[in-house]
Design a protein around this nucleic acid. Structure first.
Length: 261
DNA sequence: ATGGTTGTTGGACAA
């Protein structure tokens, strides 16, 4: 019954004690991290090795950066999202772990709208759709998780009006999100908790968003059709968000049943 | 409330 989790940690070096503590208690088989905010050399691989995790790091100085940690050996597949010649932003990792294809991603924020940042976000989503089509076409079962920086519906934000001009909630953003899901992917949390309210995964550091529970649901675990049949449970663990020196995101996890023989 | 907070980095920029 493998457990997989995703967590935007907002700097792995600033967050290391908290992340190690959570990882040791939750014991996920695979942990996908986003916004590690360090080059590969600065990633604390030894600290994770000491608690039983291998790592595949796609780092970048100061910004972005993703990592895939796993208790089993990791066979790297991709360390960049295909479809751009010169994309210097470290936002994508794809690997096989224990016979399962796993993708960790940090989708561009895209603010403010009307800038090249927003255009980059939309183009990145188009590239993700293209990659997903390839995987589906090859019949590879996969799990795709991370910080998608998308507010899919008005129910995924504490105040839709406050985000009407935000890149995360634009009609173009939402349309591409639906195009991705409509390829046949399943949102693991929604499968297990249909109709859930205020299931936030992110609370801004500002304006008392956490104590007031003013959050967003922007971190997701998506499953390919075959894997959706194996989804046993899924949850959002709010506990780390309430700790000292917390990330502004909190982990989302799922448990899969064993593959059919 | 054109603010508020955190991280990287040593002044802005990103979120």
């Amino acid at each position: 019954m493998p457990v997989l989790a995703t967590w935007n940690v907002n700097s792995i070096r600033a967050r290391l004690p908290l992340v190690l503590d959570w990882t040791e208690r939750a014991r996920p088989d695979v942990l996908l991290l986003q916004e590690i905010k360090t080059e590969n050399a600065g990633f604390p691989e030894l600290e994770f090795k000491a608690i039983g995790y291998n790592s595949l790091v796609v780092g970048q100085k100061s910004y972005n950066g993703v990592a895939l940690l796993a208790r089993a050996p990791i066979q790297p597949a991709l360390t960049a999202l295909p479809g751009a010649q010169d994309d210097a932003q470290a936002r994508y990792v794809e690997a096989d772990v224990a016979g399962l294809r796993v993708i960790g991603l940090y989708l561009p924020n895209g603010n403010p709208i009307g800038t090249e940042k927003f255009a980059y976000k939309l183009a990145w989503m188009e590239r993700l759709i293209a990659r997903t089509k390839t995987l589906l076409g090859q019949g590879i079962p996969f799990l795709m998780a991370g910080d998608f920086n998308v507010i899919p519906t008005d129910g995924d934000v504490y105040d839709a009006k406050a985000f009407a001009s935000d890149a995360l909630a634009q009609p173009e953003t939402r349309k591409l999100w639906r195009s991705l899901l409509n390829l046949g992917l399943y949102d693991a949390f929604s499968l297990k908790h249909p109709g859930a309210q205020r299931a936030w995964t992110f609370w801004d550091y500002q304006a008392g968003a956490w104590p007031r529970d003013l959050g967003l649901r922007i971190d997701f675990i998506l499953l390919s059709p075959g894997l959706a049949d194996r989804l046993a449970d899924c949850g959002i663990d709010r506990e780390p968000r309430g700790k000292e020196k917390a990330s502004d995101h909190t982990p989302v996890w799922c448990r899969l049943s064993e593959a059919a023989p």
